[in-house]
Amino acid sequence: MTQIPVQQLGRTLQIEILRHNPRDPDSVPHLQTFEVEEADAMTLFIALNEIRETQDPSLQFDFVCRAGICGSCGMIINGRPGLACRTLTHQLPQRITLAPLPAFELIGDLSVNTGKWMRGMSERLETWVHRQDLEQSDLDSLEAPMEPQLAEQLYELERCIECGCCIAACGTAQMREDFVGAVGLNQITRFRLDPRDERSDAQFYELVGDETGVFGCMTLLGCEDMCPKDLPLATQIAFLRRRMVMAG
């Protein structure tokens, strides 16, 4: 019979959080430890809300869907980037250290401005279908057919939730602010694969054919290892690099 995961041992979790409020001139980054009684099927979403509601109402963090699909709650969990909402505490040791994702602007405590970064990336790489007649699309007639396998391949790349874990796990992104990262390069491969997008390889080369793009990747594979959606990022980057070498 199926069972809901239940943590039988009554642990007291020690949750150590890297705190800093840049809006407060007196704030200095520091670690603060909170104690939380572990509950059955407890996630970091539940634990952090409990801390905020009962211990420190000023604690900042971001959750939206709390179901692992919106990408809001990326943070460093015991040294590794991941989605806090779907991390069950019983899979972690009793002492848990949480820090904000690096490489993004800090809003406060565990909250970082991934939205601003991702919007900037989208604008720079023009992550949308480029087509002459988009505004005049004939909406009455049958849609253009697409091979079923191609649609599934596109979705495979489109499952990215822009959580920022790949950026936090990327050596290049730590060294150069303007690197578009696996999230950006994956989107380029997605639109390159899409026959609805009329851009040529030469045009894609203009967007990612340098060190801030596909040639900045050092193949450390942190992005793929840390991707919560298990996207084949390293393969996509390697493929794109070959194409861009040919286009360049």
Binding site: W128, V129, R131, L134, S137, L139, D140, S141, E143, A144, P145, M146, E147, P148, A151, E152, L154, Y155, E158, F191, D194, R196, D197
Partner: peptide, 19 residues
Amino acid sequence: APKAIRELAAWGVPWNRVE
């Protein structure tokens, strides 16, 4: 509704297709 879905298809949504 059919117009909306066809618009989104043109804009890039990878709708699953009939095989």
